[in-house]
Design a protein around this nucleic acid. Sequence first.
DNA 1: TTTTTTTACGCAATCGTTCCCGGTAACGTT
DNA 2: AACGTTACCGGGAACGATTGCGTAAAAAAA
Lengths: 346, 346
Amino acid sequence: MKFEAVTIKDIAKALGLSTSTVSRALRDSYEISPETKQMVLEYAKQINYRPNPIALSLKERRSRSIGVIISEIANSFFSQIINGIESTAYSKGYNVIISQSRESYQREVINMDFLSSRSIDGFLISVSTETEDFAHIRDLYDRGLPIVFVDRVIDSIDTHKVIADNFKGAYDATTHLIKNGYKRIAHLANSEYLSITKERAAGYRQALEDAKMDLNEGYLQHCLHGGMIYDEVDYAMNELMNHKHKPDAVFASADKLTTNCMRYCRAKGIVIPDDLAIVGFSNLDLTELLSPSLSVVRQPAFEMGEVSAELLIKTIESKRPLTEFETRVLPAELFIRDSSAKKSKK
Amino acid sequence: MKFEAVTIKDIAKALGLSTSTVSRALRDSYEISPETKQMVLEYAKQINYRPNPIALSLKERRSRSIGVIISEIANSFFSQIINGIESTAYSKGYNVIISQSRESYQREVINMDFLSSRSIDGFLISVSTETEDFAHIRDLYDRGLPIVFVDRVIDSIDTHKVIADNFKGAYDATTHLIKNGYKRIAHLANSEYLSITKERAAGYRQALEDAKMDLNEGYLQHCLHGGMIYDEVDYAMNELMNHKHKPDAVFASADKLTTNCMRYCRAKGIVIPDDLAIVGFSNLDLTELLSPSLSVVRQPAFEMGEVSAELLIKTIESKRPLTEFETRVLPAELFIRDSSAKKSKK
DNA sequence: TTTTTTTACGCAATCGTTCCCGGTAACGTT
DNA sequence: AACGTTACCGGGAACGATTGCGTAAAAAAA
């Protein structure tokens, strides 16, 4: 099946003009007489002419579409980021093509390869939790393809970056637990490779330090897939709960980590927050409906998407290669609910 | 910024051949000698040649990308559908371009217009709750653009359709409430325009009828935006709870309707399921973490996405316009949890 | 009236690819 | 020797749009 569109040629033929004249008339060139212009414009509107974007892309060697590499859209944080991206992209006439790595390095490489061969003008990337080797990204970067990182950035690649204030978010969350009387605060962390993991762990450490509390290295557990696989959370939580000094609170540093931690507690009969308090990074919009309602650090995902798309499009449309790049840090906010209620004396 | 790709011309020049020969060698044409073929293939691999998809699109008059129109990706049901779509689309070499209507008719029209002018080979559509007039869809359909409906279909347009068994899902959910002792079962329904609304309401009615229970018309409340706006749920629930015979159970027919119904109960101090039992259509993956855990009718969203993408691509790639269309009905499954526990005698 | 300038348009190249026509060898057949 | 086959390859026209350049006619200047 095919559906034939109207071309500039059809207009030219119908009006007895050349294609160049029609093209110029449509672009309102000065060297076309007002009468001709009006005639063309009217006819074009009448037959609902639309310039063929593919022909334009070929001519201008740009596709007006950007590729987005994220772990998965079924994650509130990322779906909100995408909303932000689409918002600015569409307003500037760009298409958005989304591709999910599902926290797999291999899929990330394959997807980027696929998209980059499909004439993408630039990439918006949040690397997978498994990604340790950046050759596939550096490769495209070196060939001059505009790239902007969101959330999970790569320090060694010099380009625009948009992140939340992970350090402060983690610091605030941990400090909140401390103030509410928790003494043994564990950290259920994301993959060690990720920038956000390091930043959040640093905030966690600093909070403990500022409160003159010792960091028990056994309280730090990493999950390579960011909690996407329940078993890794199960393993990590078992490690924590079998510790000789069982923690009384957990600071989880990702959406899935937080919810799967709750799942674990349900399964094991651990009462939140009496047995174990929980605060986690999460952008879920129904944390208050959970049982108990969940205290979270929330990132400004929509804005992050907007800003990163703006920066990417700016890079794409700049005449010459940029040399100055910025890193935008947006605030993360702590929402206190029941899962981290003041510690009960018992 | 721009990044220059290798073209067939570069290969031709480097190897002293014509572009036609190179093209044919790459496509393994019989009229090219094995030696030439190998030479071209080797060199192409060496310099990492990738055919320019845009040039191909122009030539073949197809873009190998499909447009998806849904209400919003931040909804588990739709994000799962998209996963299914991407899964088959990517495996067949198609790009997926997603566009969200956010349950707005106007946005749906604008987005479809935008995408159809961007050389889409076909559409996968789940109409918005507001969509009552189908002219924008019929228009494209009449011009021969392949279209497949998912979930929310339009009866009057003859094309492939993929839906869940809404009637049975609703019937099962309602029957389950009846069996658990609930006598006054209300139905919090989606927009009246939607096909799914009618199908689910029919299942609800049938279940009541089969149980020899009267349908109280006051128990049927519609929400024009499928619960996306809290206030409409608030209004509808107030109508229900102020009914002279206050219902003791609610069957909600959409994801957001269900969760916002819970929100309402929280806000009003209505205890679930003691004061009001709830069963709803939902594809949330953390219904068991809610308080109380939520009984749901779950749709096979991923499969629906897969199947619909398959049907769409089949339509796109068929040589002549199809005349026979199928409607695939996939099973929906009821998961019973605490929100619809057996009615307590009190 | 002649020359110059301006106006308004067409020609053709271009983007990267495919594919319809050729064309030219080197054979084999009569 | 003359012709037909076969194998291989190149030229060039598409696909739809833009754009530099050329140029006819009209207008302005000489």
